[in-house]
Simulated assay, not measured.
Amino acid sequence: MRFIKLLLLSGVVFGTLIFLISLLFPSTAIVERSGVIDAPISTVYSQINDLSTWPSWNPWAAPDVAQKIEFSSPAAGEGAYYTWSGMHHERPVSGKVTISKSNTGKELVYALDFSSMKPMTGTFEIKPSADGNATAIQWRVETKLGMLPWWKLRGFLADKLTGPQLESGLTKLKNICEKK
Rank of each mutant, 00 (worst) to 15 (best):
L148H: 14
P128S: 15
D159Q: 05
A39H: 06
H88A: 15
T121Q: 15
P74A: 03
I30W: 01
G79Q: 03
H89F: 10
I99P: 01
P128W: 05
D113T: 13
A158I: 01
G132D: 06
K174S: 10
G79A: 03
P40K: 11
Q47R: 11
G132A: 06
G86K: 04
S129V: 01
P128V: 08
S72M: 09
K179S: 14
A136L: 01
E125N: 15
F25W: 07
H89R: 14
T162E: 10
W151F: 11
L170H: 03
L145V: 01
I37A: 03
D38K: 15
T16C: 13
L20G: 06
P26E: 03
E178L: 06
L6A: 14
K174C: 01
G35A: 04
K5D: 04
K180M: 12
I30C: 09
Y110I: 07
T43M: 09
S22T: 06
P119E: 03
E167P: 05
T53S: 13
P149M: 03
T104F: 12
T135S: 08
A111R: 15
I126S: 05
M87N: 12
K144V: 11
N49D: 12
D159V: 02
F19L: 13
F114E: 04
M120D: 07
T104L: 13
N175I: 00
S129D: 02
P40W: 00
S73C: 09
P128K: 15
L112Y: 14
I18S: 02
M147Y: 12
L20T: 02
Q138G: 13
K172R: 15
R140H: 03
L161Y: 07
F71T: 06
A75L: 00
S34A: 11
S27P: 01
S34G: 11
I21T: 11
S73L: 13
G163Q: 00
S10E: 04
S116M: 11
Y45W: 09
M117S: 14
P59C: 06
E178T: 05
L23P: 04
E178F: 06
G122R: 05
G155L: 04
R33F: 03
E142P: 08
L8M: 10
Y81H: 15
Y81P: 10
S168Y: 10
Q47W: 04
A111L: 15
D38F: 12
S42M: 02
G95D: 02
T104I: 09
T135W: 00
P164L: 03
S22Y: 02
I126M: 09
A134P: 01
G95W: 07
E32T: 11
I41N: 08
T171H: 13
K180L: 11
P59T: 02
S100C: 03
L157F: 12
K68N: 14
P59Q: 07
I18Y: 05
L17V: 12
I30T: 12
D64M: 09
F25S: 08
V93R: 14
S34V: 04
V44D: 00
L8H: 01
G132S: 05
E142W: 00
L7K: 08
T143N: 00
A130C: 05
S27I: 09
P128R: 15
S129G: 09
L145Q: 02
F3M: 11
